[in-house]
């Protein structure tokens, strides 16, 4: 059996460190020993096949039990591509978020903001043949956290992605354009590379916006690409 083609290593400036003093929870949780680099084997280049048959899609977070959630309805759509611009097909995309008031439907969230019985704040979609995904939700609210004095998380939606292989597994957050809290948020500010940071901000998109219904935002997500190999050129490379 030929060796599997590995995934490229990310540019460290585009990915966060484990130890980030401005984000207090990293202090007791970051490894102090260097990570051991693994040459990619089948264990890293393969990943779970997430079939809609076992993981039922749920693309409308804006209603629950047939009732409308409170807040500003929005559509979030985009493409999941790899670093070479190829669509990642059939990728499982999970999302979770706070409600319009900035409160999660979660027992650990004790923020003094109202819960909405019609908003659970979780969804699951799969990308199509072109890597497109799309879901309808409510624009979440900002919420306080105790990281530092007067700390507020910018408005965000959490994203979890399963690509083709374990090495493509990604959890990230999508932010909204023009949010003044971005400048104060150590989690958003975690990368040295400003362009990488700004790619976490969705773009308002009039083409996704539906008249009389909901504003649309575009958020494209890039998963790691495969290492180049001499066999990569012709057709049939995979």
């Amino acid at each position: 059996m030929p060796d599997p083609i590995g995934y490229r290593r990310p540019d460290p400036a585009t990915q966060p460190p484990y130890d980030l003093p401005t984000y207090g929870s990293t202090r007791p949780r970051h490894p102090k020993q260097p990570l051991v680099r693994v040459p990619h084997t089948l264990s890293e280049v393969t990943g779970p096949r997430m079939s809609p048959a076992w993981y039922a899609p749920h693309d409308d977070l804006s209603r629950h039990n047939g009732k409308e959630a409170l807040g500003e309805r929005i559509i979030v759509a985009g493409r999941v591509l790899d670093e070479d611009g190829r669509p990642v097909r059939g990728a499982l995309v999970e999302v979770w978020q706070a409600n319009a008031a900035g409160r999660y439907h979660h027992p650990a969230d004790q923020h003094d903001a109202p819960l909405d019985p019609n908003f659970l704040g979780r969804g699951r979609v799969f990308t199509d043949e072109e890597g497109n995904y799309r879901f309808t939700t409510i624009r979440p609210g900002a919420y306080p956290w105790r990281n530092h004095a007067n700390a507020w998380r910018p408005v965000h939606i959490h994203f979890s992605l399963f690509g083709a292989g374990l090495a493509q597994r990604l959890i990230t957050q999508m932010y909204f354009p023009g949010d003044p809290l971005l400048a104060y948020d150590p989690i958003f500010q975690c990368t040295a590379d400003e362009a990488a940071r700004n790619r976490l901000i969705a773009q308002f998109d009039i083409a996704i916006t539906q008249p009389e219904w909901a504003l649309g935002y575009r958020f494209d997500i890039i998963l790691r690409g495969r290492e180049a190999t001499p066999f990569e050129d012709g057709a049939g490379a995979h």
Binding site: P16, G85, W96, Y104, D109, D193, R199, L200, I221, I222
Partner: peptide
């Protein structure tokens, strides 16, 4: 070529996408 999207913490509220039965890979309806 665009670099892979930056990772961000899952935070404390990822239970919203967790289903405890997924921990049993041999569940009879799985």
């Amino acid at each position: 070529m665009t670099a892979a999207t930056t990772s961000q913490t899952a935070g404390p509220y990822w239970h919203l996408i967790d289903f405890p039965e997924w921990a049993d890979l041999l569940r009879p309806d799985g």
